[in-house]
């Protein structure tokens, strides 16, 4: 079982939920930018949430399926087609052997996730498939996918051919995930104040809450640079480096902000004025350069409750997906 890359996209890498536990070696977690979409992609095809998925940016790749394969595409809408027929997102799809998946236009979102039943056989480094491009390890030889790469899958436990109707290129299975709650109000991003929040001038605090910030084109998997009216600290602070996290909003010396994303470094020394709440990181990961962000202050307990509710729903989804798949193939 495998797929091959006919033509690579802008940046296609294998990712999972991150390389957790090696921060004290300076090794960052990395992993999927939109961890919700990555997990759902896995659950839909009967995998556990921790399997590797392919993270795809636009323009996307052209992919040949060498066998009948159960796949799911979640996250951004890049108009995915199989042999030029549109296929649905957030839904499991059986694709016929020798069909080609491609992405024709950027409709919505910043990155999508392609899972395959069983999961990809990538390189697991320090317990994670996530591609660390800087260190050149993990995922697919520590690199983005290239033309001609053949990605094998793990063992296939389901017989898919019976699910394909004659002549059809693919068959979408009859259940899908409702993601409305996760991605609604896409520009409204919740934050809890950071350690240096109180040191901001009152005008800057006001600015942060009242005004929009635009995502700068130079933003990437390491961080989103924001453009807005410059902010200042009441008194200048000289900070020693200490740990930072996915979603930390730092104030740079020029008064602009950067939100640290999945590939952020483990430590930093700029004022941490805020932290994006984890429940809103999937939304943020789907915003693109020139999109606007409106920050909204959230109580820390509420943030924790939102996140745990999201995770509980994923557990329920996992059971439901397994039940549906078992019913269909038994």
């Amino acid at each position: 079982m495998s797929l091959s890359i006919i033509k690579p996209g802008l940046l296609d890498t294998l990712q999972d939920l991150g390389r957790i536990g090696y921060g004290s070696w300076g090794i960052n977690p990395g992993g999927a930018m939109d961890r919700y979409a990555a997990q759902v992609a896995n659950l839909l095809v009967g995998n556990c949430g921790e399997e590797a998925v392919m993270e795809i940016h636009f323009p996307g790749p052209q992919i040949l399926f060498e066998q009948n394969t159960l796949i799911a595409i979640t996250g951004a809408n890049f108009s995915a087609t199989v042999n030029d027929e549109q296929i649905p997102r957030w839904q499991p799809v059986v694709v016929r052997r020798n069909t080609v998946l491609q992405f024709s236009s950027l409709v919505e979102g910043a990155r999508c996730y392609l899972s395959v039943h069983g999961g990809y056989c990538g390189e697991k480094w320090l317990n994670s498939y996530s591609t660390n491009l800087k260190a050149g390890v993990g995922g697919w030889h520590g690199q983005p996918l290239r033309k001609g790469d053949e990605l094998p899958f793990k063992e296939n436990t389901i017989y898919f051919a019976g699910l394909l109707k004659d002549e059809s290129n693919f068959e979408a299975l009859p259940w899908r995930v409702n993601t409305e709650k996760i991605y609604r109000w896409p520009h409204e991003i919740g934050f809890i104040p950071g350690r240096e929040w109180e040191g901001l001038s009152p005008a800057s605090q006001e600015n942060f809450i009242q005004n929009n910030f635009l995502i700068h084109p130079s933003s990437d998997r390491m961080g989103y640079q924001l453009k807005g009216s410059p902010m200042v600290m009441d008194r200048p602070v000289e900070l020693l480096s200490s740990a930072v996290s996915f979603g930390t909003v730092q104030l740079l010396p020029d008064g602009q902000l950067i939100v640290l994303m999945a590939d952020h470094q483990t430590t930093g020394g700029y004022p941490r004025i805020a932290h994006v709440i984890s429940a809103h990181l999937p939304k943020l990961a789907q915003l693109r350069p020139c999109d606007a962000i409106q920050f909204k202050r959230v109580d820390a307990t509420a943030a924790e409750t939102l996140l745990t509710a999201q995770q509980k729903e994923l557990h329920i989804l996992q059971r439901a997906c397994m039940d549906h798949l078992n019913e269909l193939v038994c």
Partner: peptide, 8 residues
Amino acid sequence: PLGDCAIT
């Protein structure tokens, strides 16, 4: 707090 999943 360092966000809702970490503490310093």
